[in-house]
Design a protein around this nucleic acid. Structure first.
Lengths: 249, 249
DNA sequence: TCAAAAGTGTTCAAAATACACCCATGT
DNA sequence: ACATGGGTGTATTTTGAACACTTTTGA
């Protein structure tokens, strides 16, 4: 009994955090596979009554009254998909009063929200991850979470197709400024992989020689003395990204 | 009486729009004068009891339940400062629960808000205007509205200094992409004015010859056959900006 | 020996940078 | 005549774009 008592003193009281009915966050999480960008989507559970052919959605939910937006984005992503310790960046805020008016979204809101009629504005966050580093484990109202190729994304819940577009646009701008996607590739990668990544994000094609020259001109992409093995062609040299050298610039 | 009746039928019922207590918009309006950038700030009225030495603030207020964020930004700016028909762009959303905790802000909120304790996240908007094109006429809770040099902005209400910083950063990025500030200069301007504008926004200095060459390479800055008059030095040639030629690119 | 992807160099045009003097005007 | 800001040209370096063949490996 004594240890139980001590335990009671140490655990803070578990008050339910209060939910703000008017503000949500949504996460646009990208991953890169050799055949293009993918985005993390969820299937929604709708209380008891399942909605027929419900729309896929970005992982997102209402914020708590006492947390920052950044913290909310991290929490919501973790609760719905199991992904944690991800560096999320704010992209844009969507606040059209009509953004929740689709019938399936209304059905879902009424099945699950305390205030389904409330005006909800949402703050979009984005990140790039290497999907092999994370195990998806859906919970809360996410029945399922899955990676979907960006080029094959169907109609989504709410205005989530617009959020996805904005996040893609944000990515394109961002990749000009800093060498994204070293989070997206294996630690040791080939220049062909890197080039495919740039081509996927910018939806463009580059000349191999010019691309290699440009990349190698930077000081933070370091050739290793290793090569691919077991490929049915000339094996490619492997490279790594040196973060410290990059941050000096 | 008949005309009164007809009138009643035509005018929609004047229901008070409902206010959303959790979401506000703030406007960071820049103007450019020869000696640098300026930003539009307001002095707040605090109900009856005036707050001693109250902080200056960006024009901003809570949104209505049934308006978009963009519409809210335009409305709020108009209500507080009289500026209208301005193209506002969204910059960033600030949602730290502690952002309203300064004592003077609390005093003000309690003097004026129906729900002064409510969590408020705010969406920042920005624009660039030519201040001579607009007459400032403060109203609503703005006792006064004024242009303040960006380099001389004091401590502001809430987290408005942070909003200002973000908007400035946004400007700097944006000016690389499109030739801002043709809204900021007189219709006919000299290249020296244009250069000063770029130097003010980017907080940098450029070589005159290189700057002129670069500007004249574009097809949308058109030399006029006119010169300055009444200046005590060689009069500068005047130029104008051709929007249609720009939008083709 | 073949298929498949890796790797490599040169040329040309455009853009960025650095730099110093004469010019037209009002006072 | 002088003070003030306006206006101009050249040389050098850097960057971007276009382009085709040889090499190494596993099957």
């Amino acid at each position: 009994m004594l240890s139980f008592y001590i335990c009671l003193r140490k655990i803070p009281p578990m008050t339910e955090p209060r939910i703000n009915p008017n503000v949500s966050v949504d996460c646009v999480i990208f991953s890169f596979e050799d055949d293009g960008l993918e985005v993390l989507l969820i299937e929604r559970n709708a209380g008891q009554n399942r909605i027929e052919d419900d729309l896929l959605a970005l992982p997102g939910n209402l914020i708590y009254e006492d947390e920052t937006l950044d913290a909310a984005a991290n929490r919501v992503l973790r609760e719905l998909t199991g992904l944690k310790n991800i560096y999320l960046e704010q992209v844009y805020t969507f606040g059209d009063p009509a953004r929740i008016n689709k019938q399936k979204d209304q059905d879902w809101l009424h099945s699950i929200r305390a205030h389904p009629e409330a005006r909800v504005i949402t703050v979009a966050y984005t990140s790039l991850v290497k999907k092999s580093n994370f195990k998806i484990s859906p919970s809360s109202f996410a029945r399922q979470a899955m990676w979907v190729k960006v080029k094959e994304v169907p109609q989504l819940a709410f205005d989530h197709n617009a959020l996805l577009e904005k996040a893609l646009e944000y990515l394109k701008h961002k990749i000009y400024i800093e060498p994204l996607g070293y989070e997206l590739l294996p630690e040791r990668f080939t220049l062909a992989q890197l080039q495919k990544l740039y081509e996927a994000i910018l939806d463009d094609h580059f000349d191999k020689r010019n691309f290699r020259r440009k990349v190698l001109r930077t000081s933070f992409i370091i050739p290793l003395n290793e090569k691919q093995k077991g490929v049915a062609h000339k094996p490619a040299g492997l490279y790594r990204f040196d973060k410290s050298k990059f941050h000096k610039i």
